[in-house]
Design a protein around this nucleic acid. Structure first.
Lengths: 295, 295
DNA sequence: TGATTGTTTTGTCCAAGACAAAGTGTTGAC
DNA sequence: GTCAACACTTTGTCTTGGACAAAACAATCA
């Protein structure tokens, strides 16, 4: 049984939205505690998570909020399972669920060696992370299993980045996310791809306010700022934040925005490059280099 | 000029709190746009950030909200600076402030090699992190510089952990923190020390709810759970959380609690080992092993 | 096909009141 | 002098229902 604040943290739906939905769609239907405050049963929280997940994919709340939970997961899976899943991915997922930590770590390392860093990120880590996220929403993955997954992959990626990192040359790229966006895996994936291209990376971790991004870009003479937005990040904040940053940042510095959230932005933002897939990272670097007279 | 939502993102103060302060303390005093909605001037946002920072250190809003901005920064400075600093530490700090990223990274790596992982963590990383935290509060360090520091040290530590990690033997130790505790560096330092002792680590990253810790401990047959608490973590939540976890967890599994927050806990908690300094980590492992008939 | 308009959907913001949880201080017992 | 219990103060979160702008969708016309 969770309070409205706890549900906000758990689902990413703001208190205002939770109350508004209740008024407007008659769902969720929380009970009340002895002092008249909303208390959400676990099933409703699970369903809310599923709804949020679908909204992140572009569904609209009014259309799906009435559906029962199994239809919601059907909607979620129908899309994903259509892209045939690599047998390797399934196998790795099973290792986490069986809590075979050393085997899991070793398997990751093995795939990294076999595929090389670039293919490892694009063909293994990215789909694996999506699969883990979906399994978590369906309740097939415990919270701690997802944490453990994230931690292990982070370790492997950071390790690979350190090994692949050489002298590096322009462009100089600053990597970070806006406040409230805590997901680091996306940033690490991009950093890995950039390091492969021989780019100089300045990783700031997550949650840097716009003003600080500007100061950092200045101090480190960055040529571009790369921002990551997970699916859970609210669209509005993304576009307003990007506009704000564009206004603050000198025009000479490019902005690259990527992640599931910006993928569904309708209109492009002036002066911001939207990166819809990890493939484009390499092209972006190439474009920057050729337009700045580099081989 | 920022909207209330933007200020929430930027300062970490919720909309409810911003409105309540305005009602109660007559501050902040946002202007209104053409539709009657709050609009915050940049100076006020800066002051709000300063207030939030001091609150994280234990100040209470009512006492400090009336002070002018320069007195607020003075409050941050007065406290620290008495402890004499290692020359090496000062030197490394200067590298970050000069934004010499490759030199900084190389210097860390060099110290790691010279000192070995254990001494590196205890004599370099720990005091360095304290010094950076203090400098940040005094305003000598920008937010982005602190982010960059954290990111780099994290990289070096994770790298070292991966290299030092061998087969490992009992005890099996689960590493994590309670929800809202996002600081990862402390956990990584402990993990490094444990790996040196040949302990098997199961790192869950930060913010794992008590119930999930129990499930993870069961799934991975952990012998101990290590929890990290930064200075910003509320004492009360720490002790109640630890008690709750102790009640949920089988008695056979030990709880090790460490970090600046627990260091100021008055009473010990029954069945919880309080780790006041990093030196004790090695002893704890030794004690566990000898009491379980291991060499 | 593509731009322009109108309509529906949806999220954010507002106000003031209520109250519980956290923190502080005081008293009294050992 | 230390510790527990209690009362008092401070502070944050939750409540209500109304209003409205921005985004998404649909329909129209060039």
């Amino acid at each position: 049984m969770l309070s409205i604040g706890a549900v906000e943290r758990d689902t990413g739906l703001s208190k205002d939205v939770l109350r508004m939905w209740e008024r407007r769609y008659r769902y969720p239907t929380p009970l009340r505690d002895e002092h008249g405050e909303r208390v959400y049963p676990p099933e409703q929280v699970t369903k809310l998570r599923a709804i949020k997940r679908l909204m992140d994919r572009g569904f609209r709340p009014g259309k799906i909020i009435g559906l029962p939970i199994d239809e919601l997961s059907a909607l979620g899976t129908s899309h994903a399972s259509s892209e045939q899943r690599d047998a390797g991915i399934v196998e790795v997922i099973e290792l986490i669920r069986a809590h075979r930590l050393p085997d899991f770590r070793q398997r990751l390392q093995q795939m990294l060696m076999r595929q090389g860093l670039q293919r490892f990120v694009m063909d293994t880590v990215a789909p694996l992370t999506v699969a883990v996220g979906e399994a978590w929403v369906r309740g097939e993955f415990a919270v701690f299993e997802e944490h453990l997954y994230t931690e292990q992959v982070q370790g492997v990626l950071r390790n690979a980045i350190a090994s692949a990192q050489g002298q590096g040359r322009s462009p100089r790229v600053l990597l970070t996310s806006f406040p409230t966006e805590q997901h680091n895996l996306g940033l690490l994936m991009v950093e890995a791809l950039l390091v492969v291209e021989g780019v100089i990376c300045i990783p700031l971790g997550t949650e840097t306010p716009a003003v600080e991004i500007v100061r950092a870009a200045d101090a480190h003479r960055a040529n571009a700022v790369a921002l990551s937005f997970s699916a859970a990040f609210p669209d509005r904040q993304a576009s307003s934040g990007l506009r704000e940053l564009r206004a603050l940042l000198p025009r000479g510095i490019e902005i690259w925005a990527g992640g599931s959230c910006v993928r569904r932005l309708r209109r492009g933002i002036d002066g911001v490059q939207v990166v819809k897939s990890l493939d484009q990272v390499s092209q972006l670097v190439g474009a920057w280099r050729s337009s700045h007279g580099m081989p």
